[in-house]
Design a binder for these strands. Structure first.
Lengths: 202, 202
DNA sequence: AAACTTAGATACCGATCGGTGCAAAACAAA
DNA sequence: TTTGTTTTGCACCGATCGGTATCTAAGTTT
């Protein structure tokens, strides 16, 4: 069949693009968008600048793809938390996931979605804005989940899904900052527990 | 009197060093340590590179001095909060100050102590570590204040000053991240209120 | 085999990075 | 004024920034 095509024409690339992207994610995670130079990135990825540009576009697109990978990998706890049966379990799992991901041995301390770029010069604006959108998206999902909980009677009628979502996101962001500063997993889990102690209904 | 000296010898500098430092602080606040270029800094300060180096040393020392100024200016709410008569008022004032400083019109959104440098490349490591120490210092002061509150019976005997300090600092850090992402003052004050709803004794 | 297409390595691009050398200018002390 | 000291403006430093041109190697297709 002329429709089937098992291999693309031309010389096949000599590296695993997924593995290279994983390494790029780690560098962005550890050094931030502006702090991660192409030399550091391609060095960790094990490929040349030219191969990186051919496979991923440019530094900004590489960052976006690394962020996608982060979302599906280290930050997948968020999607899993949203599927918990009750709002309380959603909040608990979200914060617990945040704690464990920001303090995982072998990975940079903190959260790529926070320290990737909070404040930036002109060259980092796009990355910063992408991360703002990323965090907003996470908050939106929490809000919709909590709204559903209100609708289902899982949360009291007076509960404010918008506020609850922002509250959980704020604590998670704070946990990320604390982790970047060297806080340990158990210290942060205690903070997460404390933050949930007033979960409605109190 | 040969002791008195009204003017230093040599040509007097043609700019106000305090005012220049204030402007440098604003640039670091908005763009972060790595994102703030010497061109942007000296441009905002209204002086040349040479004058900046003569007056402040280098970029790293300028950042340290800008951070000191930030501590005594925009972040002075922290020291004021620590002087409140009760632990509850300390916590309330600390978070309220955090909210108002990170969302002050005319100033960059967020907190210099957080977004100045969370993750950095080699050139920004010193600034990042300085900010970690800065946040640790703030947490230490909160912890000592809460320990005093326990000793004085202002907090219940079972209260954990270490945990309470880290909890408040975590929420403040989260507020800073949220503010950097465009959250409004009233939204964040609601979050601060929610975070204090389970203040001991519950 | 030849023709075609793409990956990889090297060397390089202009721009910008943080930081300086130099000489004119502006003040105090003499 | 003369001398000494410091600031200032400008040009410039080597290094690194993100991004590319070029040529060769390694595959597929015909």
């Amino acid at each position: 069949m002329e429709i089937t095509r098992k291999a693309p024409i031309g010389r096949p690339r000599g590296f695993d693009a997924d593995e290279a992207l994983e390494q790029a994610m780690m560098v962005f995670w550890e050094q931030g968008y502006e702090g991660a130079s192409l030399t550091a990135l391609t060095g960790a990825m094990g490929i040349t600048r030219k191969s990186m540009y051919a496979a991923f576009g440019n530094k900004e697109e590489l960052f976006r793809k690394a962020l996608e990978r982060y979302t599906e990998g280290p930050a997948a706890y968020a999607a899993r938390a949203l599927e918990k049966p009750s709002a309380r379990e959603v909040a608990t799992a979200f914060l617990a996931g945040s704690v464990s991901t920001t303090t995982r041995p072998g990975c940079p301390a903190g959260c790529l979605g926070v320290q990737g770029s909070l404040a930036a010069g002109d060259s980092g604006r796009a990355a910063r804005d992408a991360l703002i959108a990323w965090r907003d998206d996470g908050r939106d999902r929490l809000r919709h989940r909590f709204q559903r909980a209100v609708d289902e009677g899982d949360l009291p009628p007076g509960a404010d899904p918008e506020l609850l979502a922002r509250y959980i996101m704020t604590v998670a962001n704070g946990i990320a900052v604390q982790a970047a500063g060297g806080a340990t997993r158990s210290e942060l889990q205690e903070v997460a527990d404390a933050a949930l102690r007033n979960w409605p209904p109190v």
